[in-house]
Nucleic acid binder design. Structure first.
Lengths: 69, 69
DNA sequence: AAAAATAGTAACATATATTTTACATAATTA
DNA sequence: TAATTATGTAAAATATATGTTACTATTTTT
């Protein structure tokens, strides 16, 4: 579940803690999402996008594995 | 949690059942997501997007409520 | 180098997404 | 019109996202 949360967060100069508070979520949740071992909820993805001023595609889009139908 | 799953699904001529099978999820889950009373997982959102050949922004983007910071 | 701030992670608890089973209704087709 | 297919929904079970607490490690600042 690779994503661009970390780079996007740094671009708007927020710490994990600050982003978490802004969104109303735990710092640990942000950390886990950034590490990529997580499958966050759409609502949370959207809130992250709003906080970093980017779109879903910009932060969370992943190209489909090419060999599946 | 408004979205464009239903219209996107119909555009590629899939029933809820067919989409669900393609994605490996239950028909009920698709139904609930389409009805909008649901907060699906990013992974599931992506799988839906792949199945209907659209991006996250096209299917799931919601403009931020204008009065929040 | 020490102190403070930031980030990674783990165990357990809780909330909720998703499944399973089942039934009802609407829409389509024979 | 009857039969079939597609969809809405509900209750209970299960899986998993997220919270809580706590400790460690890394990075930044003094």
């Amino acid at each position: 579940m690779k994503n661009k949360v970390k780079i996007s967060r740094v671009q708007v100069d927020l710490t994990q803690q600050q982003l978490a508070e802004k969104i109303g979520v735990t710092r640990q949740t942000i950390s886990l999402i950034e590490k990529g071992n997580y499958n966050p909820t759409l609502k949370l993805c959207l809130e992250i996008c709003y906080a970093v001023h980017k779109s879903l595609d910009e932060v969370f889009w992943i190209e489909r594995e090419s060999d599946e139908q």
